[in-house]
Design a protein around this nucleic acid. Sequence first.
DNA 1: GCAAAAGTGTTCCCCATACACCCATGT
DNA 2: ACATGGGTGTATGGGGAACACTTTTGC
Lengths: 236, 236
Amino acid sequence: MKYSNQTRILVAVDCIIFGFDGTDYKLLLIQRGFAPEKEKWSLMGGFLAPDESLDEAAIRILNQLTGLHDVYMEQMQVFSKPDRDPVERTIAVAYVALIDIQKYMQQLNDSFHAKWFTIQNLPKMIFDHEEMVEMAKTRLRYKAAMHPILFELLPDKFTLPHLQAMYESLYDTKIDKRNFTRKVLSTNLLIKEDEKDKTNSKKGAFFYRLDKDKYEEEFQNVQNFIPRIEIPSSSE
Amino acid sequence: MKYSNQTRILVAVDCIIFGFDGTDYKLLLIQRGFAPEKEKWSLMGGFLAPDESLDEAAIRILNQLTGLHDVYMEQMQVFSKPDRDPVERTIAVAYVALIDIQKYMQQLNDSFHAKWFTIQNLPKMIFDHEEMVEMAKTRLRYKAAMHPILFELLPDKFTLPHLQAMYESLYDTKIDKRNFTRKVLSTNLLIKEDEKDKTNSKKGAFFYRLDKDKYEEEFQNVQNFIPRIEIPSSSE
DNA sequence: GCAAAAGTGTTCCCCATACACCCATGT
DNA sequence: ACATGGGTGTATGGGGAACACTTTTGC
């Protein structure tokens, strides 16, 4: 039995994939090799299959491109303007993924002609993908101000200056390192390693790693990572 | 031209409609008069039409039931388990609406057999609608702790005790009225009227109304309406 | 020995909380 | 006059922000 007289619609999933390279936020895009909008860049996307949920579809699509599993990903919003895809009426469910660029580098699937773009310098994209990215940036800023979500972008071992640079770059602000250190360590989410990272200084900065259990346990707690910032608007 | 070899899917819109009657939070449900799941209650829903966006569909569907325009409504999340609707594969985009019960009372469309339920005492619902409602409650608590969203549930004129009761009920807590008053008034979102509401006391409580312009301007600012509350988890 | 980044403590101020009494009015 | 809910001020403490010098080590 079916519902009669109703329109069935194509459902796409598009993944907005963020990374951080130590200095800048990056977005992973693929070059579209076919019409329409050949030459323009595109989010990694695909269509919802009959036997999978949207979350499963998003995981599948992300994995096709990056080879990664166990990536932080969440549903953002559906884009549904009737004419957003000129080929056919399609609605697109946008997912946001945060990945550690290092891991991706190792597992890249090159057949998609993917490329990282710094988010201040994005190319023309197809359809409404630019709008999706704008919303994702806004939400990331909104959410990261209150939840320790940016850890998803970090490698397993990272330094406090590295972490601080992520916040400073995301909010385009300078943060006092003493206050930042105190605030971050007071969450007890970080575990100090003995090892140091000497790539950025002669003295070297201690590595930390995330206390995974505590992180998951306390993820929802509202933190206050960013001082005095006008937290950007969000439709959430 | 069309995309070939892809599955088209039915797209539903379901509206989670909250109200507040001065004491309790309410949810507006309709009784399903047809199989499957006859007798159970349901969110107000409908299917996405070919020429409308999801936002438009949600507004249309809400209007059919309540007759209301200009209602606060936002997209929550898509529910997409392959077997969520036994009739046919359907994905459902859940929208959350906040309405002033008084206004609704005047404009109710009775042909849907709609009824308000207090949210502590909800009936069995069809499909995954209970899950949708749970998520909506969680998000409302999450968002209302930081944004002045609950004003959407209030009539044009309301009193401070009325407003306080909304917060106390939502978070199941007692709030000190002096601190609450100070905090709320410090937002400058409220305009005091000369008139008093005498329905709840002999002395009467002053009416306030919302400064609409300021409200829209500052909606995104992160406030801090709820003291010492464990803000409930949210997938946002 | 010097340049360049990492690490570390203290003071102050503001804001959030806790707390109790008087006011207005209908009965 | 009294009961009921409405309205108001103050004192205290904690946490966020501002702020500068020492340490390490590769060159």
